[in-house]
């Protein structure tokens, strides 16, 4: 038996709250209520509206199964078509040019091109890791709605874009001696296909 304040469909007041009156009469209050306490009478228990739920099995388990199956089939198809790279046997006497880090660290390599090593190799990455771990403790904004979080979302988006951009540059636009090179993507002028 829920009493609804603020009108609505009998489930809530539209702001995610249902106001319920208790079934049994409460024991008498120890002292008269005065002042601010009146604003939130203790006779009413407020709780968030229950969201609609479903049983995990089979609803969620089924979706997980399908997702896993799809991922497996996709991976198998790729693995049948595309071979993992294997170059010549390692030889420390022959330095390939350019020598690149694995793609997820190529962003750091790109930073090394632009900043002093202590900054690029140590200060930036440490800062990113520490700042990331601290993010939930620094962000004091309780709302999860995107429209209330413009600054946080903006900052994170800039960070993501920079990270992706640096990796893309390192992988696709750096060739000999890690110098900038358009031709890997755009091809050589006068040649029909990119080399």
């Amino acid at each position: 038996m829920a009493t609804v304040v603020g009108g609505g469909n009998g489930k809530g007041d539209g702001r995610g709250r249902t106001v319920r009156t208790p079934r049994a009469p409460l024991p008498p209050l120890p002292r008269p209520i005065t002042g601010p306490e009146l604003a939130s009478p203790p006779l009413v228990v407020r709780r968030r509206e229950e969201e609609e739920t479903v049983v995990t099995f089979p609803h969620l388990v089924w979706k997980e199964f399908l997702a896993g199956l799809a991922a497996f089939v996709f991976l198998l198809a790729v693995s049948i078509q595309v071979n993992a790279p294997l170059l010549q046997r390692a030889n420390l006497a022959i330095t390939p040019n350019p020598a690149k880090a694995p793609w997820y660290f190529v962003g750091l390599q790109e930073l090394l091109e632009r900043f002093p090593p202590v900054m690029a190799g140590v200060a930036f990455p440490s800062f990113v890791i520490i700042f990331m771990i601290l993010t939930p403790y620094l962000d004091r904004n309780p709302s999860r709605r995107p429209q209330d979080r413009k600054v946080a979302i903006g900052m994170f988006t800039i960070y993501l874009c920079l990270a992706v951009a640096f990796v893309v540059i390192g992988v696709f636009f750096r060739s000999l001696a890690f110098n900038w090179d358009w031709t890997m993507v755009l091809g050589h002028p006068g040649l029909s296909s990119p080399t």
């Binding site: 790279p85 030889n91 420390l92 690149k100």
Partner: peptide
């Protein structure tokens, strides 16, 4: 995990990627 696995095939790609990657560690004061 991905980085440590990169070295294992012991080809030119592996060794030099790890050389470049671990060179970054060198810069810590």
């Amino acid at each position: 995990l991905s980085f440590s696995g990169y070295l294992l095939p012991w080809d030119q790609l592996a060794v030099w990627a790890i050389t470049v990657g671990t060179n970054m560690a060198k810069y810590a004061p």
